[in-house]
Design a protein around this nucleic acid. Sequence first.
DNA 1: CGGCAGGCGGTTA
DNA 2: TAACCGCCTGCC
Length: 269
Amino acid sequence: MSLITIDGVRNFDLVHTFECGQCFRWNRNPDGSYTGLAGSYPASMRLEGTRLTIDDAACAGEGFWRRYLDLDRDYGAVKNRLAKADPVLGTAIRAGEGIHILKQDLWETIVSFIISQNNNIPRIKGCIEELADRYGRPVFAFEGRKRSALPQPETLAKLTLEDLMPVKLGYRARYLIETAKQVLEKGLPADREGLLMLSGVGPKVANCIALFALGDTESFPIDVWVARIMASLYGMEEKDHKAMAAYAEKTYGKLGGFAQQYLFYYARD
DNA sequence: CGGCAGGCGGTTA
DNA sequence: TAACCGCCTGCC
């Protein structure tokens, strides 16, 4: 156990970052701190002003958390450029001004977003927790609550649909098993095209994984919330995802992923 | 009860 | 290639 202190942290907010739908394993404590896991690394963290303190339970190290939390990017510049390119986006940016896009573990992100399809956040979190509890490796316990990493591909590939029944994944269970087998055979995918080959991974899920794990900042996942808010902000048809994707590419370019997160948070808020 | 929740895969026209 | 439909599950 080691304590990390990082000063001068700006344009960062734990609620905005952990509650914008990009991750499912962090939980808010009554005092405003967050406890959770990044892959197999557990931590608790608290932000007071511009001072971030991380209770780095498994000694992942400051470098690991800087990378995971994307602390070395100039988010002030990102927001300025986006607001300039699209004044309408300004309101959404202010609502989620402390969002950072996490750099998450690829396998964890693949599993998480396959589970996320046609599903809601509380249930996604429940499924992931149950899957980790039953078949993952225990990594730490906070205040008596045991937390485990998600099962690795080799573990998941050996499971049967029956094994996964208690996890209540529904029809997504076969996607996970099939995807685990594909990854065992061919390794983890390196790009969006590779992601789309995986069972249960379509355009929306692939865009999420590319953005949250591969660092593809131009990736612009369009879910029902983003579609809804874009329809209302830009007068587009809610079903016309093609027009939304085109607008994002033209207007936001490489910053599409950030724009998507502000829009999503604003729509949910 | 039907509708819906951060879609996908398969079928049809 | 676009439009449609079924799908696990839980909640309202």
